[in-house]
């Protein structure tokens, strides 16, 4: 049967891996290419790189990182952050990424999803969605952009459905409330989106222990779980996480 994926996320700023809590107080964690290779050899199922480089003129650094990663790891990986045009998507895919993640720029220009899916197929177009609990919204969650700083008028469930119709083949669903807390994924949000959509949903934000992954993969109906600091700081290895999941009935790649 199809296995649940454990995906490691690396935030990359000007060619270096960094990690911040709620997108602030960034700390240097190392070379993303070396980190990607180490996680590959530890059996990670997929990687996501978010380019959080602030200045547009330094964005080219990321393409070089993507190219070097693609030559050294032989699993799918996704690249997101600031991709605003069809040309941006093309550059990342041709450098060797399997998928691109579109977030704020897709909210500003939904047609970007359609263009990307037309060029490279839905399997290569991931909707990155940051959601914040908001009881005034129909689904109870509001879409926020620009790293969680800017609220939009979009309802999280409605936007997920629209993005799927436009051609997104997967959703990375990040809870701004849970992000960086290490207190667990936001299960109701993940379950809501995953069970309503016919495409895979990757849970993001809040991972602190292997039990958090088990909960979101089983009770939260997620198809995959994203982890960052719990592996970056060596708190857990991928093997420990996968052994824990396998021991509790979650089918994972060993």
């Amino acid at each position: 049967m199809l296995q649940k994926r454990v995906i490691v996320c690396l935030d990359v700023k000007e060619g270096r891996t960094t990690k911040g809590v709620k997108f602030q107080n960034n700390i240097d964690l190392g070379d993303p290419v070396e980190m990607a290779e180490a996680y590959y050899h530890q059996g990670v199922d997929e990687l996501v790189f978010y380019d959080i480089t602030a200045s547009a003129e330094k964005r080219g650094i990321m393409i070089d990182v993507v190219r070097r990663v693609a030559q050294r790891i032989f699993i799918p990986f996704c690249v997101g952050g600031g991709l605003a045009t069809a040309e941006d998507i093309k550059a990342v895919i041709l450098a060797g990424a399997e998928k691109v993640s579109l977030n704020s720029q897709a909210v500003k220009n939904p047609d970007l999803i359609r263009q990307g899916a037309k060029m490279y197929g839905s399997q290569s177009i991931v909707l990155g969605m940051d959601a914040l609990a908001d009881p005034t919204m129909p689904s109870g969650y509001r879409v926020v952009i620009n790293g969680g700083r800017t609220p939009t008028e979009l309802d999280a469930l409605a936007w997920a459905r629209q993005a799927h119709k436009l051609g997104a083949g997967e959703i990375v669903l990040n809870s701004i409330d849970a992000d960086g807390t290490k207190a667990g994924y936001e299960l109701p949000l993940t379950k809501l989106i995953s069970e309503a959509l016919p495409i895979p949903v990757v849970a993001s934000g809040g991972a602190g222990t292997p039990e958090h992954l088990r909960a979101v993969l089983q009770e939260g109906s997620a198809d995959a779980a994203l982890v960052a600091s719990m592996v970056h700081y060596g708190t857990y290895t991928l093997k420990q996480i996968k052994d824990y999941l396998a021991g509790r009935g979650v089918s994972v790649r060993r």
Partner: peptide, 8 residues
Amino acid sequence: KVPHMGWN
């Protein structure tokens, strides 16, 4: 889900 996407 279809497509069948991921590791099997």
